[in-house]
Structure formats: C-alpha cells, structure tokens
C-alpha cells in the first residue's frame, strides 16, 4: 500500500503544484484569455469527431483482431500499436511525409493542395495518436469474452451480427468505454503531431494544448491558468465516463 500510494502521490503532485501556483483570480483571468474559448471549442469539436471515428472504425477492427488467429492479423496488431510509441513530433513529420504536399499520397490531391493546416489535419493527427489506446483496450475486452455463450447463441440459430450486437458488444462495453476514455484523453492532450501537421492558427488549428504553449511563450501565469482549464475539462469528462461505465455493472446486481 505504501509503495502504491507513493506513485499515486507522485502522479498527483504536478496537478497539485499547478493548482497551488494558480490563484483563483488567475484562473478566472485564464478563462477570459483571448486564446482560451476558440481553443477550447476547437478541442471539444475535434476530440469528439476523433472519438466517433476511433470508436466506429476501431470496434470492428478490435473484434477482428480478437477473433482472428492468422499471423497476418498479428502483424496488423503490432502495426496499429506503433503510433502509441512514436514520439508525437515524429508522428507529425510522418503525417506530413504521407499526406503533405510532397507526401507519399499527394497524388490524391489537386495539385498544390493538401490537408495540412486545416481542422481536418488536427483530427487526422488526433486519430493517429489516440486510436491505439482504444484498439488495445477493445481488443482485450473482446478476447476476454466467454467463448461458450457465443457458441451457444450460434447453435441456437443466432446470426453472427445478432450475436455481436446482442451478446458480444454488451459484454465488452466496460472495456470499450475504458478504451474510449483513454483514447479521448490522449487526443485532448495531443500537441506535437498537431503542431507539426496542422500548424497553429487560432480558431482553425489551435487546440487547447497549443494555446497553452502559445501563452507560455509570453506569460507563464496565463499558461498555468489555461492548463488548469484543460485539467478541469479532462477531469470532468473522465468522472462522467467512470460513472457511465460503472452503471451497467451496478444493474447486473
């Protein structure tokens, strides 16, 4: 217990330091900082779209990864984990080299155009860095399912899609929610890949972490206040997700 609480304390300490160093007046000032609202709005919009994309494409992918025994899918599993270990700035460069004007897939675009420096680029960067967290969690959730109940349902004549929607999906929901929360948190904090691939323009590509860094260049106190705004938003969402994911288990009893 002693060792465990030491780590918990260590993880909480920077947040405590940030809160302690930011008087209430500064926090209120932070809320009125000209960069904060466009950035907060952009962060909420882009991370929501990112989450929808990650969950709707990631769930079938995770299901396939969990079910398949072929070596090819094991290779795919390793590949989809890679973005989690690539440093974000490198991920940004990689995105530029793939989807930039001179990128590998530049032939997809009209000449001289590219997705770079747009809100879509922000979402692409967020999906790239955050999807592995959802896929990982969802895959292990599907792997943990009781095979017997699936086989029984199939022998009773349920079609695969019905088995998926009525048995597998409901049973995997806690794992999916946990993965979605992790993935969303990662996309909210995303900085390096966004800066490299989407740039930094208020209202268009400047998400909250970029606004914090921009404020940091001129005024540390404003940056602290903005960081606190980010932490409050993240904390609120994570608490809601926890209570939602706890609800189905409570009903089981």
């Amino acid at each position: 217990m002693g060792v465990g609480s030491l780590l918990a304390l260590y993880l909480a300490a920077p947040v405590m330091g940030l809160v302690a160093a930011t008087p209430w007046g500064d926090f209120v000032m932070g809320l009125h900082h000209p960069l904060v609202w466009p950035a907060l709005r952009l962060s909420v919009v882009t991370t929501s779209i990112t989450l929808v994309i990650v969950v709707s494409f990631g769930t079938p992918l995770a299901w396939t990864l969990a079910r398949s025994t072929s070596r090819a899918w094991r290779v795919v599993e390793v590949f989809v984990q890679l973005p989690a270990v690539i440093p974000p700035a490198v991920a940004g460069v990689a995105l530029l080299l793939s989807f930039g004007r001179r990128g590998l897939f530049a032939w997809l675009y009209p000449r001289g155009w590219s997705v770079t420096f747009s809100t879509a680029a922000v979402i692409m960067a967020e999906v790239f860095v955050s999807a592995p967290f959802f896929i990982q969690s969802a895959t292990s959730a599907f792997r943990r399912l009781d095979r017997n109940s699936i086989i029984v349902a199939r022998t009773l004549g349920a079609f695969p899609l019905r088995v998926f929607t009525r048995i597998e999906l409901p049973l995997a929901v806690p794992g999916l929610l946990a993965g979605a929360a992790m993935s969303w948190a990662r996309s909210l904090g995303e900085f390096g890949a966004t800066l490299m691939f989407a740039g930094n323009l208020s209202g268009k590509t400047q998400t909250l972490p970029l606004a914090i860094y921009t404020a940091f260049e001129s005024d540390l106190r404003a940056a602290q206040a903005l960081s606190l705004v980010l932490i409050v938003v993240a904390f609120g969402v994570l608490v809601v997700v926890r209570s939602v994911s706890a609800a189905p288990r409570a009903r089981e009893r």
């Binding site: 080299l97 001179r102 770079t116 420096f117 930094n200 323009l201 590509t205 921009t214 260049e217």
Partner: peptide, 21 residues
C-alpha cells in the same frame, strides 16, 4: 495568407523546406 503561426523558428523552416508552406 498566413496558414500557421508557429511556436519557433525551426517549425517555420521545417514547413517551408518540406514544401508544405
């Protein structure tokens, strides 16, 4: 015509040398 206001000189230079800007 400003597509991005970068946080440091290296970011500006990287984007121009990659042809992105």
């Amino acid at each position: 015509r400003v597509a991005s206001r970068e946080l440091n000189v290296r970011q500006v230079l990287a984007k121009v040398s990659l042809g992105e800007a």
